[in-house]
Design a protein around this nucleic acid. Structure first.
Length: 271
DNA sequence: ACATTGACCTGGGAGC
DNA sequence: TGCTCCCAGGTCAATG
């Protein structure tokens, strides 16, 4: 469910509630996420004080004075800030309870997410060490994408969703960015002109910034950490619009499969 | 080194 | 009402 804007929305939602707070206790109801939650989390997190909540790719890094919680929401995960006496429901796998009688609750029906406690530099964790640049960072530039795409035979849609190339561009924003750039999703990455790649870089940044400003995209059940929906779905041009009229040319939006994921595009506006 | 495919897991909606 | 099938916002591991 969450792409970068949804994770960033979650980060901004929880940080002010928990910064400087002390973890009173943690409750792990089910540690069977994509990888099992490590036992060090239960043992070492209580008593730690929150220093900051950062984001790297779609990972949230909850930094404490004693170690770091690395958390990924997978496809269906969410974090909510709740009062400590809120009853847990199905799929509420983890609570982090604070001394101010609030808790953050991790809910994830599909359990594709993950949660680790580490005392080492979280950016050196094996799941984070090989990630590409942040899309909103200067390091993700026209020059960078031009070099990386050279001789690549993958289609551009799959290519920009590759987290070793750039992180945080998931299925929705990949489709939307290619539409706005006027690039057909099947185009071979290595065959796109420098000018078009440059345009794509700028559009990805614009799309993600706009989605963050609108609180992310609510398709089914994404909510911000206060339970309110995001509003970016109102801005979608192609995603989820198969057979509906393109807002630009009025022809029907097409749906194809690439890398086992659905791609939506306009056959007239993208080539 | 790069590209493709299978796997993980649950729930919701469509169609019968 | 209930069954079966398909689909879903991610990404790692194995394979070619």
């Amino acid at each position: 469910m969450p792409e970068l804007p949804e994770v960033e929305t979650t980060r901004r939602g929880i940080e002010p509630h928990i910064i400087n707070q002390t973890i009173h206790s943690v409750i792990v109801r089910d540690r069977r996420l994509r990888w099992p939650i490590n036992k060090q989390f239960d043992k070492q997190a209580p008593g730690s004080q929150i220093l900051s909540v950062e984001r790297r790719s779609k990972y949230l890094l909850i930094n404490t004075n004693n170690g770091c919680i690395i958390l990924h929401l997978g496809m269906s995960g969410s974090l909510r800030v709740l009062k400590a006496d809120t009853p847990a429901v199905k799929h509420d796998h983890v609570d982090i309870v604070f001394s101010n009688h609030k808790l953050i609750r991790y809910h994830d029906p599909r359990r594709f997410g993950s949660l680790f406690w580490t005392k080492s530099d979280p950016l050196k964790h094996k799941l984070l060490i090989n990630l590409g640049p942040e899309p909103l960072d200067q390091a993700f530039s026209s020059e960078y994408l031009i070099i990386k795409s050279k001789d690549r035979k993958q289609n551009i849609k799959t290519f920009i969703m590759n987290s070793q190339i750039v992180v945080g561009v998931g299925n929705i924003y990949a489709c939307e960015s290619l539409f706005l750039a006027g690039i057909h999703p099947k185009t071979i990455a290595g065959k796109i002109s420098k000018a078009r790649l440059s345009s794509l870089v700028n559009i990805i940044k614009t799309v993600l910034n706009k989605a963050i400003a609108q609180g992310g995209t609510t398709l089914k059940d994404f909510t911000q950490s206060d339970g309110k929906p995001g509003y970016f779905a109102q801005s979608l041009n192609v995603y989820g619009r198969e057979n509906e009229a393109c807002y630009t040319c009025k022809r029907p939006i097409k749906k194809i499969t690439q890398g086992q994921r659905s791609t939506f595009y306009c056959p007239k506006c993208q080539h």
